[in-house]
Design a protein around this nucleic acid. Structure first.
Lengths: 215, 215, 215, 215
DNA sequence: GATGAATGAGGATTCATTCAT
DNA sequence: TATGAATGAATCCTCATTCAT
């Protein structure tokens, strides 16, 4: 009756809409960008929350107002990159592509992916996970399994009759080869870049050609 | 045989320096073994010198009597593993192998390598380097370039007329694929292991077959 | 009635300031209730202003609009509890009670007090002060000295001829025993509660009986 | 054979005797003393490990070489004080004391205890626990239950036929009264001290007299 | 050589409090 | 007013490295 502000808006019913101010959204974007930079510079393991905050030009406390810990930053960054990927290039692969010869499919899939990784190098860092062998940490799980699932889908489209286990194994191998090749491409001197891109496509084409051929 | 520098400094008596040396060698071996264990468990970045010392059953001070810092431990461990590799399987690849069909060559090269990696998982950890993208740290450089050089030699044996740059690129790609595949193999459940080994060989065979064929 | 200072500042219209005041009172009550809850859950020292604000469903900024710091919250909460005590049970002790035998007086004093503490557990928390020995922090001073004064008055009623210093000492001892006993009672399992209440009364009765008897 | 140092001493069998150097022992004593000081000054909750280290004149790292966290310091300090108590006054209470009249027993028990608390004020701080109501933290548990058990034993000596539950309750009440009285004594001005000591004894004597009398 | 002690900077995280909107 | 953002000092704790014995 005398607290009119609590009547306004239909949000009294829901539990505290936790409405975020525009400034906050900007800070989050800033922090994620800073995190991407730091992850790329020092790697995930060695990245410190302070360095991320410093890179973002804010105090440590501010970072913790938006993220509970380092892992959450990585997770959020991964999510954001995934979204950005879908928004930018995600539609590039239509069902029609699956009708193309393998060589063209690889172009259609890899070129945007490589392009995206050049524009967002943190993507690759997060895909790799930490340096503990055989251990994909939770942080990067989403990215990792999203990629894997996508590859499996494409493969299953080509090879609907292959046993699941085989497709899964092939998908893993393809993903692994891709990650490795991507590293090579990103690390290569500009003059060598195209050659490495071609080489990665060659590996994958030769690997997959017989599979697709038996279609 | 390969430690002539340790003969220098002829102390007074005969037996003493030998003894001391032997103890030192033992300590170093102890420490390197501990380092291998710790690197495999926690990864290189997260490994602490104290944990290595503890694992080796010595005090931190002792560790620093033999190694100036953490990186030196990794370097030395890499060297040792390389030596061990040469001592154990190094001779397996005779010039005669180069006459074999590719499939057999891959068996001859990869099987011992995979076997060795199962026995010395630290090998793989060191080959990978830290999680900084495009950055092979000094620690693992020796391992890395030794492997690369070896692959280049083999490739050059098969393709003596190919341009250097091409061979180098192919070698890098082969090495990268191998590292990725090895991870998959080591991480796979025992039941899946053989299948992943076969898959890795398949990738490499299909990749290299056309190159070798044009011989 | 007891907030005349809030009438000052006669703004333009009539209804506005009243409204604002009422809302403020509500917020303060909200915050104090939240503070009581948090103090009881985590103790005063570990209670954070943010947690109090969160518990009250407001932002930290809002809290600081009504209280300059954490201590002020405790002080205000103490005042409020004291007022509530007076309003609820304060009149229970009429001069007539002082004519009663000690046993009945103890019942008359302790039962409502214990009851009140069950209903307002923050009362006890504030009475105790922090865990710094020999140090009743300012926050809880009001509560503390109000209680002490009250006990002294009652004792003085019984023992008008006793030296001040003695009465003061006895009052302190009574208060201390009461606080300790209250803790025991509040911490006891329900089945044991009555027994602990009886025990506390026993201690005090036996302690005070000789004093009162010499009346 | 060439590591003679490992043959010396029969300690090769046991798992690393973790032999502590004299300096270390001294540091531990220093740190515990510093902790006692800080606990008494600021209370347990507000005491920080850095302040303890600073008080001891060492770096934070040094503290953590001997104690894994703040709680461990409190536990160790409690143990040490308990040992010191037993070593200094522990033998004061012989079975013969139980034959004494209550008044003398109280003198025999309380005087050394009070004396010890004057000499070791941290004892009281640890006995009290944190400021969370109804919550004796693990840190002080040992001290707390040791005291309680002792009181129960004495009471059981006097009242062998009383039900366990009653003795336990009485013991708790006695302990609580003692703790409260002790605080009063320690906080009192020197001139008042003796009077408060007498007062505490009076409370306890009057409380326990009837129990003992009914023997 | 070996040990355990010592260091101090750096890391993650919290929190009382202030500020801009 | 109310909000959420911002701060920065302080907390606990770790670690590579050095030192005294």
């Amino acid at each position: 009756m005398d607290m009119p502000e609590e009547k306004s808006g239909g949000d009294t019913v829901t539990a505290r809409p936790r409405r975020r101010q525009a400034r906050g959204e900007r800070r989050i974007a800033q922090l994620l960008e800073a995190a991407a930079t730091v992850f790329c510079t020092t790697g995930y393991t060695a990245a410190s929350t302070s360095s991320i905050a410093r890179e973002a030009g804010v105090s440590p406390g501010t970072l913790y107002q938006f993220f509970p810990n380092k892992e959450a930053i990585a997770v959020e960054l991964g999510d954001q990159l995934l979204k950005r990927w879908h928004a930018t290039y995600g539609e590039a692969l239509t069902p029609a592509h699956l009708e193309l010869p393998l060589e063209d499919l690889l172009d259609a899939v890899l070129d945007p992916l490589i392009q995206f990784n050049f524009e967002n190098p943190a993507f690759g860092v997060l895909m790799h996970g930490s340096d503990i062998p055989g251990h994909i940490s939770l942080e990067h799980d989403a990215l990792h399994s999203a990629a894997l699932t996508r590859i499996e889908e494409i493969l299953a489209g080509y090879l609907p009759d292959a046993p699941r286990a085989d497709t899964a194994r092939t998908a893993r191998m393809v993903f692994t080869v891709f990650k490795g090749g991507l590293d090579l491409i990103l690390a290569a001197e500009p003059a060598e870049r195209e050659a490495y891109i071609a080489e990665l496509k060659t590996v994958l084409r030769r690997y997959l050609d017989p599979l697709v051929g038996c279609l």
